[in-house]
Amino acid sequence: MDLRKEIIEELLKHSILVEPDVVDFIIERGGKDYLPHFIEEYRPLEVVTLSSLKKEKKASEKTVFSKPEPSEYEWDFKVLMGEAELKIKEGGIEDFRSLFLDRYKRLARILGTQTQLRGYTEISKLRGGEVKVIGMVDEIRITSRGSLIFTLEDPSGRVECYYPEGSFLLNDEVIGVVGNYSENNDRIYVKDILRPGVPIMKKNRKIAENISVAIISDTHIGSKMFLESRWKKFLEWLKRGKGDAAGIKYLLIGGDLVDGIGIYPNQEEELEILDIYNQYEKFAKYLEEVPDYIKIVMIPGNHDIVRNTEPQPVLPEEVRKMFNGNVEFLPNPGIFSIHGYKFLMYHGTS
């Protein structure tokens, strides 16, 4: 399409009429790159003439619209855990055992740093008296008096626990227990239950570049409930590069990129686009409007064209090739770093 025609059509979408010379003025200052700035500046005017332009240079004096500062920086993006690192398996018994064991070990390391649990004992080595144990919860029961009885398991063995004060526990939860162990009853009488915490970051890390990250999710392209007008406002905000948008260098999209097909009964009644590949084509077309200095990072969700079992692989190749080169495709979950900051992106299910 002719550049002049594209500019005029975009101005008409915002109810702005211009003289032919004003179109030349816009082209000289960067064309479509300058257009969002022009629309923001002159939106209040119904008709824009050369004489109404505010303190601008003459049209004959060519200037180039300057992009926001982040466009000057190189992308510093590294995949820390992609599809290869996830080691997607068949889901056999041994695979599940390995998963739960790995989860136990990771959480036990976190719990073991707490003062109350330092020097904790393996269940197989318990001796009478005060004990500290870390294990995975199983077989939860509540007595008529509200006390809690549950089994705690670690790689070395199992032990029954009794907590008279009661508490909220979940099966397969990894917790720390402090209490007294009775060898006669083979039971721990629990005084306190401890859970993994999130470490407090004392150091306020900063990077040299003046950049920021925008995070969105659940665009559900193809659904009749897709908020198209708000999406277009978001794209316009990104392209304008003003205010909070001025620092954006990365756009993270956390799954459910499209609405998909056959996700729930009678879904087709709520779909605007019935073909899932057409849904992705529409999404790719939308993302073409994102400024090219912004890197886009995407993971799938339960509505996307991947398996529901987690971890979910990246989108298939026939979908990936619809998108521009500034798009990174990761599995769900995906772990990556941006300028040294570590990100975990995950899409759950309800």
Rank of each mutant, 00 (worst) to 15 (best):
275 D>R: 05
158 R>L: 09
310 E>C: 03
99 L>T: 06
28 E>S: 14
293 Y>C: 04
199 P>F: 07
126 L>N: 05
252 L>H: 02
60 S>P: 07
259 D>K: 04
220 H>V: 01
118 R>M: 08
144 S>V: 10
136 M>K: 08
204 N>L: 12
238 L>G: 01
268 E>W: 14
126 L>C: 04
113 T>Q: 14
248 I>M: 03
279 Q>P: 14
1 M>L: 06
53 L>G: 03
146 G>D: 11
63 T>R: 14
239 K>H: 05
329 F>P: 01
203 K>H: 11
53 L>D: 03
159 V>M: 06
27 I>G: 11
85 E>R: 13
29 R>C: 13
330 L>F: 01
193 I>L: 08
292 D>T: 14
76 D>R: 13
203 K>D: 05
249 K>Q: 10
212 S>F: 00
12 L>K: 15
49 T>G: 10
293 Y>I: 08
18 V>G: 04
261 I>A: 03
300 P>Q: 08
24 D>F: 06
13 K>F: 06
109 R>K: 15
52 S>L: 13
27 I>D: 12
128 G>L: 05
46 E>M: 11
349 T>V: 12
239 K>C: 10
185 N>V: 13
116 Q>N: 11
292 D>W: 07
62 K>S: 09
167 S>L: 11
59 A>V: 15
89 K>V: 11
89 K>I: 10
237 W>Q: 02
341 Y>C: 04
186 D>I: 13
309 T>G: 10
222 G>R: 00
278 N>H: 11
131 V>W: 03
14 H>M: 12
323 F>S: 03
97 R>P: 01
245 A>Q: 04
202 K>S: 11
300 P>A: 07
125 K>N: 11
103 R>M: 12
75 W>V: 05
17 L>R: 14
149 I>N: 09
286 Y>M: 13
82 G>D: 07
150 F>W: 02
124 S>V: 09
44 P>W: 08
55 K>F: 11
219 T>Q: 01
350 S>V: 13
344 L>N: 09
236 E>A: 15
209 E>K: 15
269 E>V: 05
246 A>G: 10
41 E>C: 10
176 G>A: 05
259 D>R: 00
290 V>T: 10
72 E>A: 13
16 I>W: 05
36 P>D: 10
165 E>A: 14
60 S>F: 10
195 R>D: 11
88 I>K: 15
114 Q>G: 08
112 G>W: 03
190 V>N: 07
175 I>Y: 04
332 N>Q: 09
183 E>A: 13
23 V>C: 09
134 I>V: 08
23 V>M: 03
215 I>K: 11
347 H>P: 04
325 G>E: 12
82 G>F: 01
45 L>F: 15
299 I>H: 02
343 F>C: 00
96 F>C: 01
180 N>C: 08
143 T>S: 15
217 S>P: 08
177 V>L: 02
201 M>K: 15
209 E>Q: 14
180 N>V: 13
93 I>G: 09
76 D>L: 12
67 K>F: 07
253 I>D: 01
108 A>M: 12
320 R>S: 05
186 D>F: 14
294 I>D: 02
120 Y>D: 12
79 V>G: 02
295 K>P: 00
169 L>R: 03
124 S>L: 00
180 N>H: 12
286 Y>R: 06
139 E>H: 13
101 L>D: 12
46 E>K: 15
30 G>Q: 03
36 P>Y: 09
345 M>K: 08
49 T>R: 08
